[in-house]
Design a binder for these strands. Structure first.
Lengths: 220, 220
DNA sequence: ATGTGACTCAGTATAACTAACTAGTTAATA
DNA sequence: TATTAACTAGTTAGTTATACTGAGTCACAT
């Protein structure tokens, strides 16, 4: 079994000391570099091509998010594990978008950090349980919110209205819709007007948003 | 500390035997009912109002998904923990939509099932690590797919255009946007026109869809 | 220094949409 | 049977959006 080559970056010397101690305590890891800011981390990645880069988010010169983006673009073989105190959804999401392979909170136990490094080195993704919880709850909230009875579109709009709304959200004009449905333009406009009155909406843009929010159109 | 009243439902007698043994082994639980199908489970929930209903998905008469929906609607105080062998995303998502509070795989360890029951009894949600993994990976995939370089909005639209597009997708008219940004209507219209040309889009509806697709507006 | 892209603004013409009405037909239902 | 909701269609008026052409300023890079 090959050793896992590790680089870590954090602007606090104390954290670096801790990480150094941590990774030296286990022979399966080999530290190939330490950096105190994002730019330095990049240079060391370039030089040593580690298997895993353990990055803090807030660092001088180049923060962890930007560093991650660059690493994932230039050196895709180097996995990125974020080690941070931030547990809010936005940060986490930004990191996922940047391409981070794992996300571990700083107060995690030794074993959790090891697990994280091993997992990302092994091409898996890894998130601290508390981070997973935040993500899952966001996911569940999003999955569920379209299912509340009050917001159920079918109780508010008639079948014909929904049919028309689908076409509107697809970008068809009233004229085109009238041709598709063999109706007069007046009728389509009536449906538009009625829907808008019901929904307290006053423009096409909001109608489209409403349609998308209620899964009337799928976004391929 | 009050005992957690438990009902479980599974169409296999062997599984029921196992669950009975399991929950009897710990005095914090008290079994108030056992069912071999969904309908029976419903009747027992009605009768005993358990804190937690542990349900299998595939059961005769009424499956776990439908049973969950009914329980969550009629007896919201009863938490539902799904215990199943299915680990695919669709099943999991269906269960979340149905309102399940937790989801544990059948080959989980004793402790995990206990943890699950305790968590849902405690108003938290709970998912087996392997289930969490499936969900998280789905989430990450979804989060990332809007980030492919070809479809990256920031390479196509300028900052000002994106700013304007956000407002458009929020349902503001050009006039309103011009007032917000202290610009003339002509300018806003120019931005609209330029965006449409770039994106080969010819109506507001499609612009709004494009904005949403690219996460320019969040749908609360 | 020249060109390019981003941003700004104007004007004209046409198309599309919004608002506020009226009103007839049909189907379900109390 | 009378009522209601849904669907249909229309008028009138005003507003907003789309499609053009044209043009000036600014910053930045070749």
């Amino acid at each position: 079994m090959k050793k896992i080559k590790i680089l870590f970056a954090d602007d606090h010397a104390i954290v670096r000391d801790g990480l150094r101690l941590l990774f030296k305590s286990d022979p399966q890891f080999s530290i190939v570099g330490e950096a105190s800011n994002g730019e330095e981390a990049l240079q060391l990645v370039e030089k040593h091509r580690p298997n895993v880069a353990v990055l803090d988010i807030s660092m001088p010169k180049l923060n962890g998010i930007e560093a991650t983006k660059i690493i994932k673009e230039k050196y895709p073989l180097t996995k990125v594990l974020i080690l941070t105190i931030h547990e809010n959804e936005e940060y986490i999401q930004q990191m996922i978008l940047a391409g981070a392979d794992g996300y571990v909170v700083k107060n995690a136990e030794k074993k959790e950090i090891f697990d994280g490094v091993r997992a990302v080195a092994n091409n898996e993704s890894f998130f601290s349980p508390s981070v997973s919880k935040v993500l899952l709850e966001a996911l569940i909230k999003r999955t569920r919110k379209n299912d509340e009875p009050e917001s159920n579109i079918y109780n508010k709009l008639t079948r014909r209205e929904i049919e028309v709304l689908r076409f509107i959200a697809d970008g068809l004009t009233s004229k085109e819709i009238s041709q598709k449905l063999f109706l007069s333009i007046s009728t389509i406009n009536s449906h538009r007007t009625n829907m808008m009155k019901k929904l307290d909406i006053h423009d096409t843009a909001s109608l489209v948003r409403y349609a998308i929010q209620n899964n009337l159109v799928q976004m391929k």
